[in-house]
Structure formats: structure tokens, C-alpha cells
Amino acid sequence: MPEGHSVHRLAQQFSSVFVGETLAVSSPQGRFAAGAAQLDGGTLLSALAHGKQLFLRFDNGRVLRVHLGLYGAWTFGGDATFRGASSIGAPRRVGESEQPSEGGPTAYAGPPEPVGAVRVRFVSEHGWADLRGPTACEVITTADETTARAKLGPDPLQPRPDGSAFVAKVLSSITPVGIQLMNQAVIAGIGNIYRAEVLFLQGINPWRPGKQLREDEALGIWADTVRLMRDGVREGRIITTTVEARNGRPKRSAPNYVYKRTGEPCRRCGTTVLSAEMAARTVYWCPSCQPD
């Protein structure tokens, strides 16, 4: 599932190439025809990411809320002025990857024929965007957006990230910290990769109850999450290891410390990395670096 940094990259891309543009909005597969009709011909005013949810605000007071889920992805294209990633969404391999685009051909004849089940298509004068496979895609009001965002925890990628609410929630609960980090009402944007890697970096066992964490440990989780997710926005993928930890090899050779490394030696101490099911998801940790 795309984690928060990918959704923030989406918001940046929409802001760059679609905000201020009058858009033709359609639903080539037909499942979103009624929603598309409410947006068609409108001007996109702004694009905002909160955790894993994207809110696209139009000038008629309508908002398109999108949650990509496990399979959702946006693809983009356009003329030579239309720059950015060609696709952002569900990773096709470990980590996140978005293919950069340097802009399309000068002679732009409009968007291509839809390929696959395109839920929503945006078309502007200079480019297009197709959405496929989202978990949620709905037109809501600005009041609905406010209500939806109020249910979410703090986003580490907000302009002035404040971890105080996150720390208070984590420390007040007996729920294991590994479960809390996946709860979007506690912290918005973390997925399975960031959870595993942040806890490893902080030396915290994912099964430790939140109430057993010290305040400085909870603050450390928040600080590392802010840092790593900002790196993800910049790089277009999740990379949590340092160059030293990767023995000087290129970044792509070893992006993570423990995520999906069950049975392999820990990159720091050599102990076998463990994994187990936690609340229907797989969690990874080093029993030596992250003791009980």
C-alpha cells in the first residue's frame, strides 16, 4: 500500500500541473460517472494530502477524496510543459518507486485511449491523469473533508509537524506500539515499511505496550518518521538505511534494515531478523537490536 510520502508527492504533482486549470473529468469504466459529472468543467483550487488520503478541492465546493489502498495508482502524461512523475501509487516491488517524466512530446494530441479500468480521468489543456483501483474515491463537501480529517492523527509531513498529540496517544495506551503506528487515528501516513524501519532505528520492540515507552522514545519515533518520510517525498521511494550500513553500495541495493528480510542477518548485528503476524499484517524486527 502506498504510504504517506507517496500521497504527498501526488498532492505536489496535482498542485504543479492541475491547480488553476479547468478540467474535463470523466469515468471511462463508468463506475464513477455520477461523481465525475459533479466535477466536470470545474477548476481545481488545491490539492492536499493528509496521511494516506488525498483531497482535491474544486471551485464549486466539491472535494474528490481518494484513498489508494492496496492497488490504487495514478498515471500521468501530457505535452512538453507537463512535468513530474509518470505514475505514483501502489508499489510493484519492495519499497516505493515512481518513474520520472521529463514531459511529453511537443506535438500533443490529447490523452491516449484509456487502458484498463480507469475509475477517474482528468484532462487539462496540457495533460491528463488516470486513477485505477482505489479503495476509496468519492465526491464530498468541504464540511465532509473537515470531518474526515478530524478522524485522522497528526501527519508527520505537515508543514510544521507537531508530535505532541502522537506522543500523548501512544503513551496512554496498553496497545503494542507496532499496532498503534498502523492506526491512522494515532499517526497518519505510516504503513508497514515505515513501521518496521522506524522501530528498528529506535531499538524498540514492536510488541512493547505504548504505556511502557518513555516520552523520549515516543518523540524519537516521531522525529525519525518525519525525517524518513521527508526523504521519501524527495527520493520517490522508501530508503531507510545509511550508506555505511550498505557498505558503500548504491542506494537501491539495500533500501531497508528489516522490512521483508525474515531469516536474513541484521545489517547491524548479524542476528536473524524475525517476523510475525500482528493485527493481520506482518511485522519485522531484530530481536537483538530491539529486545523485549
Rank of each mutant, 00 (worst) to 15 (best):
F122D: 11
R132Q: 12
F82M: 12
V186R: 06
E21C: 12
V115G: 00
L70G: 03
Q158A: 15
P28I: 05
T135Q: 15
K52A: 00
S173D: 15
G127L: 02
W222K: 07
Q99R: 14
A279L: 06
S16W: 06
R160S: 15
F82R: 09
P156R: 04
Q212A: 11
A117M: 00
R31P: 02
L219D: 14
A188H: 06
G210P: 09
P2Y: 00
F82D: 01
D216Q: 11
A245P: 03
A254M: 13
G95F: 02
T75V: 09
K169G: 12
A185C: 09
L54Q: 04
R281P: 02
E3S: 07
E125S: 10
A47C: 12
I140W: 04
F14Q: 07
S275P: 01
V186S: 06
G127R: 10
S16A: 13
G103P: 13
K169H: 15
S253T: 15
Y71P: 00
R208T: 14
L70R: 07
V118R: 00
W128I: 10
G248R: 06
A223F: 04
P265W: 11
P105S: 02
G236N: 03
A148E: 14
V177R: 08
A109S: 14
P255E: 04
E277H: 05
Y194N: 05
F82L: 02
G127S: 12
D40Q: 07
Q290F: 05
G127C: 10
T271M: 01
G89A: 01
K169R: 15
V177C: 11
I239F: 09
L23C: 11
L219N: 15
P156D: 10
E102G: 15
S173N: 13
N192T: 11
D155E: 03
W74T: 08
A85F: 14
P209S: 12
M1K: 11
S6L: 13
P250G: 08
A185F: 03
V115C: 01
T81E: 07
N256R: 13
R214H: 10
G104N: 06
E264K: 13
I221P: 04
G263V: 08
G95Y: 03
S275M: 00
R214N: 10
A37M: 03
A90N: 02
V66L: 03
A80P: 01
G210T: 13
L64A: 10
R121C: 05
V177W: 14
I238K: 02
G95K: 08
I239R: 02
Q202S: 08
R237A: 07
Q202N: 07
R31I: 07
E96R: 07
R132H: 03
P100F: 06
H8T: 14
T75D: 12
P250T: 04
S101A: 09
E217S: 05
A150Y: 06
E197L: 11
R119T: 15
K211H: 12
G77D: 06
H5N: 11
S275E: 02
F166R: 05
L54T: 10
G72V: 04
C266K: 09
P134R: 02
G220H: 10
S164K: 14
L171M: 15
T282C: 00
Y71K: 08
A33Y: 06
S253I: 04
F76N: 08
S27K: 01
R234T: 15
V139M: 04
G248A: 02
V118A: 03
Q212L: 14
P134G: 03
G89Q: 01
R83W: 08
G127W: 04
